[in-house]
Design a binder for these strands. Structure first.
Length: 261
DNA sequence: ATGGTGGCGCGGCCA
């Protein structure tokens, strides 16, 4: 069972890349962030032709999340309890034996910004929600663009980034508290190349110089974590012309019923 | 270097 996450930074622009990637990698589930599409504009037909069902929570210009899957998605949720938020950043669904929560965590802008306050509040509401979900869903995966680099080894230059948004201690503490509920960062269950990142700024040739951050994560509940057999960053889509600034992260699991192949 | 690039949409915001 293959589960992937990819912040595509406009599904309208990136649709050809997404379709090519689905055909090559054949994930059972792909969580997308920053689709930047209203629901009536979602390319459901093209995705159906590729053999995937889709559920989505769209928004014009900003945000927007979707779940593509071989099996149908049921019991769909699009909001965090206790957070009245017009921004479309949350998509939870049951797919086969899994419960999947697809997140586009707020960026935060800078530590003195209202957006940073909103990010920490958002993460607090997420914590409360996930605590309850872990009681109900033994096979829970939480994936997406967390906009937090968990540790210094997830940052190309920790000194340069020290204290900045995406690496600040309050954000990392919020992520650590989430993990302490009983989740693992599947990427760190396996040996990885040094300087493995999932996002590189478009500016200043950051990708060519590998000046990136690992902020796209696949978290797994304890029972699911035991069944994780691999997790990797797929840098190939970031090398294409007109790439997203993020690249996909893919995890594989054993003993999960799958409809692929 | 307080810059740089990209998406949306057509001025300025967001990342």
């Amino acid at each position: 069972m293959k589960l992937a996450t990819w912040n595509v930074n406009s599904l309208r622009v990136r649709l050809p890349q997404v379709l090519d990637w689905l055909a090559q990698v054949r994930p059972d589930i792909l969580a997308l962030q920053e689709t930047k599409l209203q629901d009536p504009d979602f390319p459901a037909a093209a995705i159906a032709d590729a053999g995937y069902q889709a559920v989505f929570a769209g928004q014009k210009t900003y945000n927007g999340v979707a779940l593509l899957s071989r099996l149908p998605a049921t019991e769909v949720v699009t909001d965090l309890p206790g957070l009245a938020d017009p921004q479309r950043r949350v998509l939870g669904a049951s797919i086969g034996a899994l419960r999947v929560l697809n997140l586009y965590v707020p960026n935060g802008a800078s530590l003195d910004s209202d957006k940073y306050v909103y990010k920490l509040e958002w993460l607090d509401k997420l914590h409360a929600y996930v605590a309850g979900q872990l009681q109900r869903c033994p096979l829970l995966a939480i994936v997406g663009d967390f906009n937090i680099a968990p540790e210094d080894r997830d940052v190309h230059d920790p000194k340069e980034w020290e204290g900045s948004v995406l690496v600040s201690e309050p954000e990392r503490t919020a992520l650590r508290r989430l993990l302490e509920l009983g989740l693992c960062d599947t990427f760190r269950r396996f040996d990885q190349p040094e300087a493995s990142f999932s996002w590189w700024d478009y500016r200043a040739a950051a990708f060519r110089r590998n000046r990136g951050l690992r902020i796209d994560l696949i978290l797994a509940s304890g029972t699911l974590c035991e069944r994780c057999s691999a997790c990797r960053v797929d840098k190939d889509p970031r090398r294409l012309a007109q790439p997203s600034d993020h690249t996909p992260v893919v995890a594989e699991f054993t003993d999960i019923p799958s409809a692929a192949d």
